[in-house]
């Protein structure tokens, strides 16, 4: 009933998606990265597997091949989905350069001498910490930025207003609800 083939196929599907991800990112550099990650890691493997099953299935009736049962398909796609989810959850620090990991690498580079708190603060500019994240959120359709044309400071864009989209609102509410279920205060970011 259960063969190692299921595990290999689940991992194989993920590896194909991962190779496609590197190729797409190196060639196209998509701006809506979360949408493209979903397409590359979830839509394409599921679609690809269903097409492959439909094409390969009839040829295996001679006994030489292997036909996936509905359970096999479920287990293969679930394993692929979990591997993809694990990668997608690890992706934000890859894309945005996680500050905590950056601190670890900087302190590691300083060796036994170590770093003062001031020196650690100096590694980061405000642009990298907040403005670039705002840009990512605009690109992913979570917020949009409205410029106040009556403002007198258009050059520095200080009069911009951040407006949350319905998608961003849903995500914010989902995390707020999750923290309420755990009975924890909202995260500090």
């Amino acid at each position: 009933m259960f063969s190692l083939r299921i595990i290999f196929l689940g991992i194989g599907l993920f590896l194909v998606a991962f190779a496609s991800h590197i190729a797409v990112w190196r060639i196209v550099k998509p701006s809506k990265q979360m949408l493209w990650l979903t397409i590359v890691f979830i839509v394409l493997p599921i679609g690809g597997w269903l097409i492959f099953s439909a094409v390969a299935g009839p040829h295996s009736e001679d006994g030489a091949g292997w036909t996936a049962t509905p359970l096999d398909t479920f287990l293969i796609l679930l394993l692929n989905l979990l591997l993809s989810a694990a990668y997608i959850m690890s992706y934000p620090p890859i894309q945005a350069g996680c500050p905590s990991l950056k601190i670890i690498l900087a302190v590691n580079d300083s060796r036994a001498e170590g770093m003062t708190a001031e020196a650690i603060h100096r590694i980061f500019s405000e642009d990298i910490l907040v403005s670039e994240r705002l840009e990512d959120m605009v690109n992913d359709g979570l917020i949009f930025v409205k410029r106040d044309i009556a403002g007198d400071d258009l050059v520095s864009l200080k009069n911009e207003t951040i407006v949350i989209s319905w998608k961003g609102y849903l995500i914010a509410q989902m995390f707020a609800l999750y923290r309420r279920i755990l009975n924890l205060p909202l995260g500090k970011g």
Partner: peptide
């Protein structure tokens, strides 16, 4: 990672701050 996002992600914090009023002055 999901828990970590709720605890440490700058994007989640910014979204939650914006969702309180719907808008947020960049200032």
């Amino acid at each position: 990672h999901f828990f970590n996002m709720s605890e440490t992600a700058r994007r989640v914090r910014l979204l939650i701050e914006s969702s309180k009023t719907g808008t947020l002055k960049k200032n």
